[in-house]
Design a protein around this nucleic acid. Structure first.
Lengths: 237, 237
DNA sequence: CGCATAACTGACCCACCGGTCAGGAATCAT
DNA sequence: ATGATTCCTGACCGGTGGGTCAGTTATGCG
C-alpha cells in the first residue's frame, strides 16, 4: 500500500460536476471541464466514476432521494392527530415550507431536473416524484373529506392534480430565481387559494380565518419578491 | 428548367423530423434517421433546411405560434360582455377545452417541449408561453375582482400562479397519455376546484351550481380515463 | 536510500455524426 | 436522340469529445 487516495478528490469532482451539469445540462457538459474545475486530470474522473452518466446519476439521485424524504414526513400516519382543521393547516404549512426551503437550497439541480436538462433518461425521476406527491395529496384529500372538512362531492382525482400542479408551478418558479423570495408567503398564498376550493361550505369561514390569521409578521427585508417574472424570456442568440 | 422539385419532399421531411425529434429529442435525433424515414437521402435534408436545429425550430415555433393563438382568443376584450358569472364560466370552459384539444392533437411536440427535450435553447418558448398564460390569468382575475365576482382580498400574484400551474399540470398529464381522455371532464373538474377558491363568499353558491349544472351528459364510451397515472415510472434500462 | 505499490496524468484513440459536394439521374426543349 | 439544366444522392470529410492506458509521480516500507 503506497500513495493513499486523495480523500477530497471525489467530493471535489462531484461539486465541479454539479456546477457544470447545472450550467450546461448532461449532454453539453464535458468531462474535461469538470476535471479542470476540480483541478484534476481527465483520467482521474474515471477513477471515481465509470462514465459521465454515472456521475450525473449519483448527483441527481441523491438529491431526489433527500427530496422524497420530505414527502415521507407528510404521510398522514406520521403526523399527530390534529385537534381541528386549522391545526392541520398549520402542520401542512410548516412541512411545505421545509420542502420549499430544500428546493431553494438545491435549486441548481432541481432546475436541471425540472427542465429536463439531463436528457429524457432522467425525466422519470421527477415524474415519479410528482406522482408520489400527488398520491400523498390524494390521501390527504380523502382523509379530509372523511373528517368532514372538505366537500363530499370533491373529485379527488382532479383536485389532487390541480393542487400538486399548483405546487409544481411554485417550485418551477422558485428554482429559477436569483434572490430568495418570501417562501412562507408563497406557501401561505397557495394554501389560501387552494383550501377554500376544497372545503365543505360549512367550514369555509374557519379556513377564511386560518389562512389570514397565521399570516407571518413580515421581516421588513425580504418580502418583496413576488412569484413569477423571474427573467425576461428573450430568445438566446 | 428541368427536373422540377419534388413538391412533397419538404413536407415529408418535416413529418419524419417531427417523429424523430419527438422520439429522441433534438440532441439524439440523427439527420440520417430523419431522411431514411422520409425515403430521402441525407443531402436532400440540407436542400430544405440549413441545419438540424433550423428544422427543429421550424417545427417547434409553428406549434407554439398556433398555441399562442388560443391564448389570443381568451383576451378579455375579444369576448362579448357576459350577462353574469355563470355565462362567463361557460365561455372560459369552451375556450379552455379548445386549447386542450389542440394540445392533444399536438401532444408529441408538446411533450417534447414540456420535458425540455429540445435542449435548453428552446425552453424559453414554453416559458414565454407559460408567462403569457399567467398574464392572461391575471387580467381575468383583476377583472373578476372588479366585477365583484371574486374576493376583494384575492392575491392576484399567487392566485394566477396557482391557476396557471394547475392547467400546466393538466397539460403535462394530457400529452403523455396514449388514449384520449375526457377532456371536457378534466377542464370542468379544474374549474370546479379553482373557481370556488377565488370567489367572493356571496357568489359561491352561484358557482357551486354553475360547475355542476353544466356537467356534460357523458357519452358512455370515453369518460373513464382519469388524469394522471399515465405510465409506470420505471427506470429505463 | 531504493524498491514495490498504487494513485494519478494527459496524449492519444476512435466512434460518431453534422455537414459538403462531385457526380449521377431525371426532366424538358429542340 | 441529344444536350442543357436542375435536382438529388451518398461517399467522404473533419471536428468533437468520451473513454483508455502507458508512463509518471507520490508514498510507505525495509
Amino acid at each position: 500500500m503506497a500513495r493513499p487516495v486523495d480523500p477530497h478528490a471525489k467530493i471535489e469532482l462531484l461539486r465541479a460536476a454539479e456546477a457544470v451539469f447545472v450550467e450546461h445540462g448532461l449532454e453539453k457538459a464535458h468531462v474535461e471541464e469538470i476535471t479542470a474545475r476540480a483541478g484534476k486530470s481527465k483520467g482521474s474522473f474515471y477513477l471515481h466514476f465509470s462514465s459521465k452518466e454515472e456521475a450525473f446519476r449519483q448527483i441527481v439521485e441523491t438529491t431526489i432521494a433527500r427530496l422524497a424524504g420530505y414527502l415521507e414526513q407528510m404521510e398522514p400516519a406520521s403526523l399527530p392527530e390534529p385537534a381541528d382543521l386549522s391545526e392541520m393547516i398549520e402542520s401542512w404549512f410548516e412541512l411545505e415550507v421545509e420542502l420549499f426551503e430544500f428546493l431553494w437550497q438545491n435549486r441548481g439541480v432541481m432546475r436541471l431536473l425540472l427542465q429536463g436538462g439531463g436528457s429524457a433518461d432522467f425525466g422519470y425521476l421527477i415524474d415519479a416524484f410528482a406522482e408520489r406527491a400527488r398520491e400523498r395529496t390524494k390521501e390527504w384529500l380523502r382523509l379530509s373529506v372523511e373528517r368532514g372538512h372538505y366537500r363530499k362531492d370533491l373529485d379527488v382525482e382532479v383536485a389532487s392534480l390541480v393542487i400538486s400542479g399548483a405546487y409544481d408551478r411554485l417550485a418551477r418558479a422558485l428554482v429559477r430565481l436569483d434572490k430568495k423570495p418570501d417562501i412562507r408567503g408563497w406557501v401561505r398564498g397557495a394554501q389560501r387559494v387552494l383550501l377554500i376550493g376544497c372545503c365543505a361550505p360549512a367550514v369555509r369561514e374557519v379556513v377564511d380565518q386560518s389562512v389570514s390569521e397565521f399570516v407571518e409578521p413580515i421581516p421588513a427585508s425580504a418580502a418583496s419578491v413576488k412569484p413569477g417574472g423571474a427573467r425576461k424570456f428573450r430568445r438566446p442568440a
